[in-house]
Design a binder for these strands. Sequence first.
DNA 1: TTTCCTGTTTGATCGATGTCAAAGGCTTTC
DNA 2: GAAAGCCTTTGACATCGATCAAACAGGAAA
Lengths: 234, 234
Amino acid sequence: MEKPTVTMNKSLRVNSRDKAVLVRAPFMAGLSGEALVKMLNAASISSAPARHIVFREGMTAEHFYCVLSGYVRLYRLNREGREADIRICGPGDTFAECLIYGDDIYRFNAQTAENTTLARFDIRTARHLAEQEPDIARALISCLSHHLLTTMDCVANDRLHTAPQRVAEYLLKACPVDGGPASIRLPFQKSLLAGMLGLAPEALSRAFSSLRRAGVTVRGRIIQISDVKSLRDV
Amino acid sequence: MEKPTVTMNKSLRVNSRDKAVLVRAPFMAGLSGEALVKMLNAASISSAPARHIVFREGMTAEHFYCVLSGYVRLYRLNREGREADIRICGPGDTFAECLIYGDDIYRFNAQTAENTTLARFDIRTARHLAEQEPDIARALISCLSHHLLTTMDCVANDRLHTAPQRVAEYLLKACPVDGGPASIRLPFQKSLLAGMLGLAPEALSRAFSSLRRAGVTVRGRIIQISDVKSLRDV
DNA sequence: TTTCCTGTTTGATCGATGTCAAAGGCTTTC
DNA sequence: GAAAGCCTTTGACATCGATCAAACAGGAAA
């Protein structure tokens, strides 16, 4: 049990690679010079080790975040303490930005899945910026729209597809090529992928083994697909 | 099978009750005079009978909508043709507004669940208005944020709670009082509630009957709750 | 009020996934 | 390179919810 903390472990000088990720993140891409500078100035970069609690459900929401490297798990608990992931955020993803005009309380827990670098924005500052700079408002709208669509996709997938189908869909999205053989390296642990797809780790494992007949071979984080096209028929 | 149509069945003169709902909708509430007038001018009111297809997944997205009366089901199909509801929109709810800065294609199907009146907004016009009027941008951000939170709740509920728990949660949200006995009248058919909670109608029925032990009595659309507090323990 | 239609409930069954436990295999660290 | 630790896989089992079919009930229309 780690105690909830608002501040990150250590602040770092802004790394050029971090800055590049931040500027290219969907949230900031398309910002003009003036607006971009304002947002960059409002950001503070920090890093956290794996399993660090970024915030907990119920805490006063003072910041929203953009992942620069690593992964963050957004999840909620039921009464018995079982966790369910709501979203997995990777490099370029923004989270808790939906609280910018809402209650001032986090609605879920956020925990790093591995060594992670985050950009942190003060929510009140961002709100003011969004009201001053139309470009920032536009970026926010665009970002929120995209999240909403993604999350609706998630609901539909959960309700419509079985475990192997969800895995196949993930692989197809991650596939660089469109037909023939392909190879993918998972960017994170399988247990994280399981949570992303709304599955227990055991169920993900079984889904993979049921995909063997569709030409999917798994060895560690490397996934070989003998024929991408046949994955679509799962 | 109804053919997909972009236009509603018949345009009506703006009813005063419809207008009242529109102005009070979360999307427009908080708009100042100027911005409000612009948005109202951009709206066109129309009505449709039950089971009317408002739009289909894959169609070019030209409008987004606000429900003034009745209910609209947003859903997607799997390969076998089974439907899964993603969201149920009631009076005051906005849908497809998430396409304002995205692809120009609807990502799900929309069908009226009963006699329904809708306000329709041209997406391009709304986009321009959002860029001209900061208040409209703010309203959009607020509306999208709220939808995103609601949809994330939906994912968490699906993954964390059983059918009876989801029904209990719905009843608690719908409850006017906070403890003691209460009575609720469902505003729509049970099959719609089932879809909303991600259940087959039979599963909803069984969930209700399993809630009898928690003091829930169902007769038609009327639901009696002997003790609201005990519903929380489900 | 009566009838018909549609929505709802109930029963039986099946498939899918969560849970627990133990064995196996990567990865990392020394 | 070797060992330890954690992640992952596999098996067995229980549970939940979907599906199909048929009985039932409620609501709308005559």
